[in-house]
């Protein structure tokens, strides 16, 4: 860990302004990812702005009939929230599939959206990694890549986005609300929030310099049967090889989002459109453009089979 300075933000606007003014400043909330990365000097902020005291920890209805989730709502609290459990079951299930109880107690909503990849080459500072050190190359391409992404990847980076929560939010068409350094608020559709690696894999979101997440809003509930299925090497406390968030409607329709396979939480309209045609068709649509390695090619099969499992269970229920 490199020495850094620390301050406590007094307001959202103050946090954004300070972050924009100080090069190398980062916000800190739960710290469950950032602190680990700082110890390894993968992240080397010169200044930490503690935002834990800004409020932003409420879950409340929106005038549109949806839900606004404060940026600092802890994963444990969000998963346990009565409204979330009743109306957005897929989100609660995704959260509980992630990390461990201890980590969920600390991890925040905004921090979870911004958590960084688990690519092993990103974690070893002796290895090439364009995401960690732009221009150094990609160790994972041609290396060990079993856990890595097959969608949205580039020649520069095949890192996967590790979040479960973000997959459910992608499914629910969440919006990420922010305040910029200039004090101006905006809402970013989650589809546009995470960016693809292209040749700048070190840039992972649409956030501008100093911009701070204040909340995530969910549109009004969509009904249907909410499921989150996470497939991993052990029964708990592991990142997804493949995860599927799905909502099945009574009309035979459905919508799908995927984790563990994309450079960002993955969703495609074509997959939703294929919902009534079954697992194989949904998988085919979702996997359009997939680029696999020798190690992670199985993820294509696994996506289809995970969907098949969800359809099988759906049919068993009806």
């Amino acid at each position: 860990m490199k020495p850094f300075t620390y301050s406590r933000a007094t307001s959202v606007a103050d946090a954004a302004k300070t972050a924009a003014a100080m090069q190398g400043a980062r916000f800190i909330a739960g710290g469950t990812n950032l602190l680990d990365l700082m110890k390894l000097q993968i992240e080397t902020p010169t200044h930490l702005i503690d935002v834990n005291h800004l409020g932003l920890d409420r879950i409340e209805p929106t005038p549109e009939g949806g839900l606004r989730i404060g940026a600092l709502v802890r994963n444990t609290d969000l998963a346990a929230d009565k409204t979330v459990r009743r109306d957005y079951g897929v989100l609660s299930r995704a959260l509980l599939a992630g990390a461990s109880g201890q980590l969920r107690n600390k991890a925040t909503t905004a921090g979870n959206l911004l958590q960084r990849t688990r690519c092993p080459y990103f974690y070893d500072t002796n290895m090439p990694c364009n995401k960690r050190k732009p221009g150094s190359g990609c160790g994972a391409i041609g290396g060990i890549s079993r856990s890595l992404a097959i969608l949205g990847v580039s020649d520069a980076c095949i890192a996967q986005h590790p979040s479960d929560m973000a997959v459910a939010m992608r499914l629910l068409d969440a919006q990420v609300e922010t305040v910029g350094a200039d004090g101006v608020a905006r809402a970013i559709p989650i589809a546009d929030f995470h960016t693809l690696p292209g040749d700048t894999p070190h840039i992972e979101s649409a956030l501008k310099n100093g911009e701070i997440i204040t909340s995530v809003t969910l549109p009004k509930p969509i009904g249907g049967t909410h499921v989150y299925r996470k497939v991993r090497d052990r029964a708990s406390y592991a990142f997804a090889l493949v995860s599927v968030a799905a909502v099945f409607g009574k009309d035979g329709g459905g919508r799908f989002a995927f984790g563990g396979i994309g450079a960002k939480p993955w969703r495609t309209p074509a997959a939703d459109a294929a919902a009534s045609s079954g697992a194989k068709a949904v998988a085919e649509a979702a996997l359009s453009g997939a680029r696999t390695t020798y190690h992670n090619a199985f993820k294509k099969t696994l996506v289809e089979r995970t969907l098949a499992s969800l359809y099988r269970q759906k049919e068993a229920r009806s």
Binding site: R118, P120, Y123, M127, G139, A235, S236, Y237, A238
Partner: peptide
């Protein structure tokens, strides 16, 4: 290529957890 065990932490070297 580089001659190391690349999954050299407890996040990536999986051992059974209670649920297993």
């Amino acid at each position: 290529r580089f001659g190391l065990f690349i999954n050299h932490d407890m996040a990536e070297y999986a051992v059974p957890v209670h649920a297993d």
